[in-house]
Write a protein that binds this DNA or RNA. Structure first.
Lengths: 346, 346
DNA sequence: TTGTAAGCGTTATCAC
DNA sequence: GTGATAACGCTTACAA
């Protein structure tokens, strides 16, 4: 027994009746205030809660309190580990602080993004963490008009001054390119994002700066567009490698394209790293799995997620100092080298 | 203007006042029923809604209706693409049906799982999709006692009769192993899950059956435990390859371990596929990125997520026929072969 | 066809 | 220290 089989919710009034106290007293026990309760009464109430298996109704509570513990997380694609890893960081901090996360996938579509924003407003979300899929500001305006705080993750929107978190994308590309420069390469191919956004432009600039610092002239022919699929990187790689004077090293705005290009090179029978070097930026795929090992710059996605949640919670609690609204997280080069014997040694 | 700058929520009563009608009429317009409204009144109401930027309060609505549109999704780890891909499928179907998804990460911890289940009960979740991290039935009992329907994804819990979705794990391992058998291999190593669960036992059995069907005696020495990390697969691979009489082909209960083992072999300078073949089962990493190309069995994670959401929604609507409660999704072998010239041709 | 009002399960302000 | 009771914003039965 103990478990009710009738489909009627057990309310605070039931608990009060069972414990022989008033409904208000039950609230005071549950919420540990705002008024004191004698230990004896408390015991009675807790016993009744236990016996009835009472669970407070968060809907009623939130309606009354005029606020919720829900935060919306809007990301373009959970299949992409860059986003899902961010999501994990957000969830972790949210959980630790008693918030729950409503997952919203825009699928890179503005209409879905707006639909979700309407939903979040309707559900009285306490705040939103958002990786926008465009620079459109309609959603931001909407959230602002309903006084729902939000944090922009990885992207920016023109004219929106909300807190933001990003990685040091310039440095990421700089480090990857510079690693290849240090290996002695002077013709370094770069696969760029097919449609440039703020962060991909920063990466292209990092590439250019690393070349410039090494007194290597920038050759626009060595920059080719990749794509969002692994195969796109492969195509871009083949394009670079079939040039009259092909690069001796390749990097890209993200690892999906780096790995695709590396794959293409391997299919072409080119020896890596003897005849061609690679360095990546770890957005999406897990470069760790590559062979030969691939040196990459790690983007701290999980940390970005955690930080954005911390920022949002501070914002909700109105405890966020103005000078801590915008953060750029540092990135780190991870050198991976093969201990494998040369290819033809066996 | 048009957007209120005072932090006061605009309610249905405000709309009614603005439109010069009663609050009830506003509801009838918003909900398209249950009573008819003249076109003229409707226009007035819609105009007022628009002018005031009114958004109905879902909390109040749900409290009144005694039900919500929220479904809980409990997964162990969103970083693992097996789970995040499932999540994407769930979200897609949920969105299409007007449900929102509350993401709950158990991080493989029972206490977190239970904490989330309590949260979902408290929030009056309409249903739950759950990839349990253990065979403990406390959470299931709790959900049942609150009459919250749930679907078990990929796992089963002893004594729990809720609807379930899984992949044909037996067939997956059978296909992978059989692929290697067809290539002529007779000593095939298998990396098993360190702690066996229902699905990993099915995979081990699939491996055994494929051997048996080819009249290859089962050699327990060829089965070694892997782990949850890429490195674990690498260690297991080295273990197999340093045997007195090593296998000529290797497969594993998941691709994390397959790829780890393949990596180990490459580090050891072993030529693939000339001296050693691999076949995988695509749970986690994206085998597509491997070189040499890796033949794998695709587990339809996205489809599993979609199907579980469809099942749950039918269950919520009490429209789920008894004979459609349990589903086992088919799996498919994806043969990938290299077009690369042999390793030493250059 | 439309208005009025009860009630969903809470919290918090009153009295006692 | 505790018990009644008025909101919170909505849906819907009932009244007009």
């Amino acid at each position: 027994m103990g478990i009710s089989l009738v489909k009627r919710t057990i309310t605070r009034d039931d608990v009060a009746r069972e414990a022989g106290v008033s409904p208000a007293t039950v609230s005071y026990v549950i919420n540990n205030g705002p008024r004191p309760v004698t230990d004896e009464t408390r015991e009675k109430v807790l016993a009744a809660i236990n016996k009835l298996g009472y669970q407070p109704n968060a809907l009623a509570r939130n309606l009354r309190m005029q606020k919720t513990n829900s935060i919306g997380l809007i990301i373009p694609d959970n299949k992409n580990t860059f986003f899902s890893d961010n999501a994990l960081g957000v969830e972790q901090i949210a959980f630790d602080n008693g918030y729950n996360v409503i997952m919203c996938h825009s699928a890179y579509r503005l209409d879905r993004e707006l639909a979700y924003i309407h939903m979040l407003i309707s559900h009285q979300a306490a705040g939103v963490i958002w990786i926008p899929c465009s620079e459109d500001s309609a959603g931001a305006k909407l959230l602002e008009s309903f006084h729902i705080p939000f944090v922009l993750l990885d992207r920016v929107i023109q004219g929106v001054t909300s807190p933001s978190i990003k990685a040091d994308n310039f440095k990421a590309a700089y480090l990857a390119t510079n690693h290849l420069v240090q290996l002695g390469h002077r013709r370094i191919g770069f696969i760029k994002r097919p449609v440039d956004l703020n962060h991909s432009i920063a990466r292209l600039n990092g590439y250019k700066q690393a070349l410039q610092d090494a007194n290597i002239p920038f050759d626009p022919d060595l920059v080719v567009p990749g794509g969002f699929l692994f195969q796109d990187g492969s195509v871009a790689g083949r394009q670079l490698l079939s040039m009259a004077s092909p690069p001796t090293a390749i990097t890209a705005y993200n690892d999906m394209n780096t790995i695709g290009a590396m794959h293409a090179a391997q299919e072409m029978g080119i020896r890596i790293p003897e005849d061609l070097s690679f360095a990546g930026i770890d957005d999406i795929a897990q470069s760790e799995y590559c062979f030969p090992p691939l040196t990459t710059v790690r983007i701290p996605t999980f940390e970005m997620g955690k930080m954005s949640a911390n920022l949002l919670i501070a914002l909700i609690r109105e405890e966020l100092p103005e000078d801590q609204k915008h953060h750029c997280l540092d990135v780190e080069l991870i050198v991976r080298e093969s201990t494998a014997p040369p290819c033809n040694s066996k």
